[in-house]
Design a protein around this nucleic acid. Sequence first.
DNA 1: ACAGGACCTG
DNA 2: CAGGTCCTGT
Length: 588
Amino acid sequence: MDLPPVLLSPQSQTGSHLAETCMERERSPPTAELARDSFPSDQVPSSSLTDTDWFGDEHIQAKRARVETIVRGMCLSPSPMVPGSARAKESSCCPEIARERKRKQSLPTHQGPLKSGLGWDCGPKKGETRVKEQLNLLKQQLRHLQEHVLQATEQGPGGAEQRSSPRAKQRNSFLSSPWTVDSKVHQRSNKDTCGAVKPRTAEVHQQAEEPVLRPSGARALVEALRKELNRAVSQAVDSVLQQMLLDPPGHLTRQELSCQRLASEGRNHPSPPQRSAHKEPLALATLPRRVPPQAGVPLGSSSLATPLDPPMCPVSPRAVPKPHQNPLTNCPLTAVSSHIWENQILSQLLGRGPNGHWSGSPQQDSSSQSHTSAESAQQPWVLSQQQLPLSFTSVRLESRPLLPSVKMEQGVLQGVADMIPFSSIHIQEGLSPGHLKKAKLMFFFTRYPSSSLLKAYFPDVQFNRCITSQMIKWFSNFREFYYIQMEKYARQAISDGVTNPKMLTVLRDSEIFRVLNAHYNKGNDFEVPDCFLEIATLTLQEFFRAVSAGKDTDPSWKKPIYKIISKLDSDIPEILKSSNYPQELFRN
DNA sequence: ACAGGACCTG
DNA sequence: CAGGTCCTGT
């Protein structure tokens, strides 16, 4: 396969991708890192009550009493979420999902109530109550501390802008680096933690570098409060986790047990048939998204400056995705999912659907998909250097969960929700829009997935005949669109007088790419892998050859092309296997 | 853009 | 029968 160097993407483009990757990383909330930071902590959570002494006023005691009453109330009332009510809510706020369900209900399979093994529908147990109590206490403390911090910052010279929206500040302090008040330090610390977990002791160091903006007294107070906040949060996470792991066996789900086993032994997943379907790094949320998903594949000028060789995207024997395991993996994502019920409560409060999907559909970048007819007339094989892929500007970052406002404690709840691993595996019988989205992304890697591959990559889907064939139908439709586009552009090239198929390439700035990207990757959540460009190029050339050779008179002239393309499926990156991948996308 | 259905094939 | 294409309807 000697593809011409024309195939290479323009350097400038690569640069912009890289830059964006980094920027995105900087901007993305490091909450998951925060959580991860706290998990391996070896410090045994000291009694959280000592923290309350720090305030030393009866005000807290009163609040605490109130919280305990609330918690007790929560424990006495049955599960806050009945499937029925959830569905009612779903259909009112998200007609698409409702439609999906309706469709599902028309299927022969009976859509029964959700599985009872999920934890949230069994009544709360003692251990959970304790944990909840503790969690609530800690939340109170956190809020209190935040108030202190806010007061302190309002006294400082930079107080004016922060005073403008203390509520937003609260939320931000959870969504991003919570321990820094100064936005510059904030950014820097985010950059520092890009990919790596920074030890907490670094805070002191940070303080030394911080621009002098406040009176030293206030600064000291801020610093003290910051540390206290830091400690409180890590204790919250630690103790919650500790509670969940140490609770009586009856409380543990099978998955948690396997988590413990894995955590101690490191390897050996108990369920071979699913392969590594459940082996997902805890730190998934922190994985950069725009990085080429294939392990070991470099991104950037170096990789693109050389002719594209096949290893860019190894062609796999059908349905044998080799699991390039993240070394960090020692506990499956699903393992921590007994927080489900808690997550569900929080999700409800935060305006999320019961599956953890954001109930509002993610905002799409529609601007990138509307093109003038002049643009559409552009030939696929013409490199347009000036036309950088606008579509790759991450507009969606702005639209990140400005959730339906829940007046009380939104910041705190958001913070806690983010601290709790976003992992609720929710085995469901239906297919959601999120699944469709994921399937489309998978299409970049595999055009002809086997049903077993699909099962492996949708661990949260309860497969039956209908679901399987529906998913296969999806891919069939994907292919249909794909081949139609290919034929269209091949014919266009011919009518435009192109004679050498090698002149036809699909690049990131070609029109055909934009069409395909708009179809399979609406919203640009994903960086289209280079291997897809190669496949598309090849397909285009094959169509060109066939049509220009006049083979299209044969009714089955496309079959040989299909056959070629069907052999070019590649491995799908592990990150797409994650059951919460759609959520990850929506959260981004 | 998706689903349903007819029809083909191994 | 599973899985594929093609056509059609919304």
